[in-house]
C-alpha cells in the first residue's frame, strides 16, 4: 500500500537555513546540509528546500547546497524558489535535486512547465500553487505571495496537470504562518479536481493538522516547516502519531 508522505521544508537564504532545528548537538544550526541529513535520518520521506535568496549575486549558492545535500541524503530532494527557466531546472537536477518546484514561472510562461516536463519527465516537475481565498474561490499568487494573478486556483491546477506537472504543491496563503492548520477545503477541492498527487502546505501548527490534511484534504503528502523546527516535533513523532490515527505512513 502506498504511504502518505511527510515532507519537512527548509527555507534557505544565501545558503543558510533561516529557521531550523535547534538541537544542542548540532555543529552548525544554519547549515542546510546538516539539517537535511537530520531529517532524512529521522525518517523524512522527502526533503524540500525553498530558496528565498533575494539578491541575484547569491543565487548560485543553492546549487552548491543541493550538490552537497544529494551526496549525503538518499531520499528524494525537491528544490523550489526562484526557478525561471529550463536552464535553471537543468542545473538543479544536475546538482542532484530529484524534483524542482516551479511557482511564478509556471504562471508567467506555460512553456516552462510543458517543455521541462517533456525534457526531464513529469516525475521531477512539481508546480507550486500559492492560493488565497476570495469569496468562494481561490486566486493564484506569484512572487512569493506579493502579486495576485487573478487566476482561479482550481482551473489553474487542472491546467498545470495538462501541461505536464507530476505533482502539485498547494499552499494556502491565508493559513501560511498562522499555525491554524491547512485550508482543508482548498486542498480537497484541488485534489478532487486533478488526478496527480497533491502536497498540502501552509499553516501546520500541530500534528492533528497533518492528519486533517490527509484525511479531509485528501492530500497524498503533507509539507510542514515550523513544527519540525526548534525540535517541537520530530518527523518520527509525526509519523507515529499519523500511524496511531490510522493513516498509512512509512515507519
Amino acid at each position: 500500500m502506498l504511504k502518505n508522505r511527510i515532507i519537512p521544508c527548509l527555507d534557505v537564504k544565501n545558503g543558510r537555513v533561516v529557521k531550523g532545528i535547534n538541537f544542542v548537538d548540532l555543529k552548525d544550526a544554519g547549515d542546510p546540509v546538516e539539517q537535511a541529513k537530520i531529517y532524512s535520518d529521522g525518517g523524512a520521506d522527502e526533503i524540500c528546500f525553498l530558496d528565498i535568496t533575494a539578491s541575484n549575486e547569491n543565487r548560485d549558492i543553492i546549487y552548491d547546497v543541493v550538490e552537497k545535500t544529494s551526496r549525503k541524503c538518499f531520499v528524494p530532494l525537491t528544490v523550489g524558489g526562484g526557478i525561471r527557466s529550463i536552464e535553471d531546472i537543468n542545473k538543479l537536477l544536475n546538482c542532484g535535486a530529484d524534483k524542482v518546484s516551479i511557482n511564478t514561472a509556471a504562471v508567467e510562461n506555460s512553456k516552462v512547465v510543458i517543455d521541462s516536463s517533456k525534457k526531464f519527465g513529469a516525475q521531477c516537475i512539481v508546480v507550486a500553487i500559492d492560493a488565497k481565498k476570495k469569496g468562494d474561490k481561490w486566486e493564484v499568487f506569484t512572487h512569493g505571495g506579493r502579486n495576485n494573478s487573478g487566476i482561479d486556483a482550481l482551473e489553474y491546477a487542472k491546467q498545470m496537470e495538462q501541461n505536464g506537472a507530476g505533482e502539485l504543491l498547494v499552499t494556502s496563503m491565508d493559513r501560511d504562518g498562522t499555525q491554524l492548520g491547512y485550508d482543508i477545503k482548498l486542498m480537497s477541492k484541488i485534489s478532487s479536481k486533478v488526478n496527480i498527487p497533491v502536497i498540502a502546505s501552509g499553516g501546520v501548527g500541530n500534528l492533528d493538522h497533518l492528519v486533517d490534511g490527509i484525511k479531509f484534504g485528501n492530500a497524498s503528502a503533507v509539507l510542514a516547516a515550523s513544527i519540525f523546527h526548534y525540535g517541537k516535533h520530530s518527523v518520527q513523532e509525526a509519523k507515529e502519531y499519523l500511524d496511531s490515527k490510522g493513516i498509512p505512513v512509512r515507519i
Binding site: 502506498l2 504511504k3 496527480i196
Partner: peptide, 16 residues
Amino acid sequence: DNQDGKFKLPHIGWNQ
C-alpha cells in the same frame, strides 16, 4: 490502470 481516477498517477511515494 488508475480505475477511473481512483488511483492518482504518477504512483509517487513509498510503497512496500
